Computed example of a mutant assay.
Amino acid sequence: MSTTQSERLRGLLEPLVSAADLDLEEIEVSRAGRRRMLRIIVDSEEGATLDACAELSRAVSEKLDETDAMGEEEYVLEVSSPGADRPLLQHHHYVRATGRLAKFQLNDGDEFVARILTVDDEGLDLEIPGVKGRKPTARRVAFADIAKARVELEFSRKDKKEEEA
């Protein structure tokens, strides 16, 4: 996809996404056999619900039908949330993941899993879980030192509201 098409799509769709109280995280156009796939990833502070994605999908479909932004060729439209194990790429991703476990790969090759405790402009305060009866340890990581980070799935995670009570 050319940068021009990506910018056109973002400019066209961002007002619709904002009107739905969502954030436009990503627009991706790819091939799926003979058709193209337009994947739109949205999120919000509370998360993007299935109903919100379905409603936005209808609005996006109508808007794309009114314009030639996707050209004449057939395409499949998919509007979804980033998923539970989302990559952490931007500052607000880390803020939204506060309280969650994440897997970190640092620029020096160090890899570990830790809970995100706080986020500021320079980096993160983390808690690395204790292993075999050991106490958890605190660690500070600067954003500049992070090569990759991804939220880890937790099946027995305490809800933030439970922890505050």
Rank of each mutant, 00 (worst) to 15 (best):
M1Y: 09
M1W: 12
M1E: 09
S2R: 04
T3C: 15
Q5H: 12
S6N: 15
S6R: 15
L9T: 00
R10L: 06
L12S: 07
L13S: 10
L13N: 03
E14H: 09
E14C: 01
L16A: 04
S18F: 12
S18Y: 13
A19D: 05
A20H: 07
D21S: 14
L22Y: 00
L24I: 02
E25Y: 02
E26V: 05
E26P: 04
V29F: 07
S30G: 08
R31I: 09
R31Q: 15
A32H: 12
A32L: 13
R34S: 13
R35N: 14
R35P: 10
I41S: 02
I41N: 01
V42F: 00
V42E: 08
S44Y: 01
E45Y: 05
E46W: 11
E46L: 14
A48L: 00
L50R: 03
D51K: 00
D51S: 02
D51E: 13
A52V: 00
C53I: 09
A54I: 08
A54L: 10
S57F: 04
S57M: 06
V60L: 08
S61R: 00
D65Y: 02
E66G: 04
D68P: 03
A69V: 04
G71A: 03
E73V: 12
Y75M: 10
V76T: 13
V76F: 12
V76D: 14
E78R: 05
V79E: 06
V79N: 01
D85R: 09
D85M: 04
H92M: 10
H93N: 07
V95A: 05
R96H: 03
A97I: 01
A97L: 03
G99D: 01
L101V: 07
K103L: 10
F104C: 06
N107F: 13
F112K: 03
V113Q: 10
I116K: 06
I116E: 04
L117H: 02
L117W: 08
T118Y: 06
V119Q: 05
V119I: 07
V119K: 03
D120W: 01
D121K: 13
G123Y: 02
L124Y: 04
D125G: 09
L126C: 01
P129T: 02
V131Y: 12
K132S: 13
R134H: 14
R139G: 00
F143H: 08
F143S: 09
D145K: 08
I146A: 09
K148W: 13
K148C: 12
K148D: 15
V151W: 07
E152T: 05
F155R: 12
R157Y: 11
K158H: 13
K161H: 15
E162N: 14
E164M: 15
A165P: 15
